[in-house]
Amino acid sequence: MTDETLHELPMRWADLDSLNHVNNVVYLDYAAESRALLVDDGLIGAEERPVRIGVDFLRPILLSRRPVQVRSVRSGSELTQRIRPAGAEQDFARVVTELADRPAQLPARGPGAASPLLLRRSDLDATGSVRTDKMFELFQESRIPAIAAALTSMSPGRFVAAHVEVEYGRPITWRREPFESVNWVTRIGGSSVTIESQIADGDEVVARCRTTLVGFDLEAQRSRRLSDDEKAELATLVPQD
């Protein structure tokens, strides 16, 4: 295990989402920024690529003049990064990245309904492939309408992401034609739901994502139980054998 490396990154107003919190996908940008610095420092090899990134969202970060701190520890192929605003005593997010020199082996295409997924050039890194953190954004953008279509009432903040994990297959390079996103529900609990998502190119799955969403009471700012109606509506996204 390596010693802990600390990076401080200024927060930006543009990091905030419509709920006035740091957008979930921005945590991945913080982690990616810090990982790039670890590459510069030789702690991560230039040929090593993330094959899996999991993030636990522990509490929301509000805008502050204080920088964000990313504390990284590497143990074998696993890099753990803990994110919090400077001065805070608790972590606000934890990002675990598995590094390897070859892509993950991904399962076959899943059973959900497919939707077109268009890339933007701003999704790409210097090699012309979709950045690892942008993949979280693509999954988020594909997941929200899939869930919203199943629910009769959907508003921002009704669910919050507690855990998101992405596995990366081959690099996704730019093309004008859309890829396909596939989403389905794999578990419905008392207060949370798990969604499996894939980005596919024909029959080939190029990335997969597993997300745990928790019911949230925006006014009380705490988690809530899912209603029977919500459960029944979410159940329509569970594939039938």
Binding site: W13, A14, L16, D17, S18, L19, N20, N23, V25, L118, R120, E137, Q140, E141, I144
Partner: peptide, 11 residues
Amino acid sequence: LAVRWTDLDPN
């Protein structure tokens, strides 16, 4: 261009 959630600001 598809509008994304991440394109939005706190307003």
